[in-house]
């Protein structure tokens, strides 16, 4: 049972949250201009990083807000929580 800090509501149990996978994957602005391969890459191919991983959560049983987190996928330790639209801490990954 992870302990997750919603940037609006504070610390809550994992059971209040939904998971949204990798963060900072932007939907192509003009989907027609991308190839099938690029579209597939957007849809299905993630980094699945081992170690610090930027990911999305949604406080679905609370404020219903989406937000981002950085979490080590080997220890599950959260390194940061930040709101949608905010720059991820630590720069380029």
């Amino acid at each position: 049972m992870l302990h997750i800090k919603c940037p609006w509501c504070g610390w809550r149990d994992e059971s209040e949250f939904g998971y949204g996978g990798e963060a900072h994957i932007e939907r192509p602005k003009d989907p027609d201009s991308v190839s099938d391969a690029e579209w597939a890459d957007y849809l299905f191919f993630g980094s699945n990083r081992r170690g610090d991983f930027r990911e999305r959560w949604v406080h679905s049983a609370g404020c219903r807000r989406w937000f981002n987190a950085v979490r080590d996928t080997t220890t599950y330790e959260f390194k940061a929580f930040y709101r949608m639209g905010e720059e991820p801490p630590g720069g380029e990954q």
Binding site: R27, R65, W66
Partner: peptide, 13 residues
């Protein structure tokens, strides 16, 4: 609802 919120908040803020 989850699907709509996701797009609204994460793709089209």
């Amino acid at each position: 609802l989850g699907h709509l919120e996701e797009y609204l908040q994460t793709e089209w803020p």
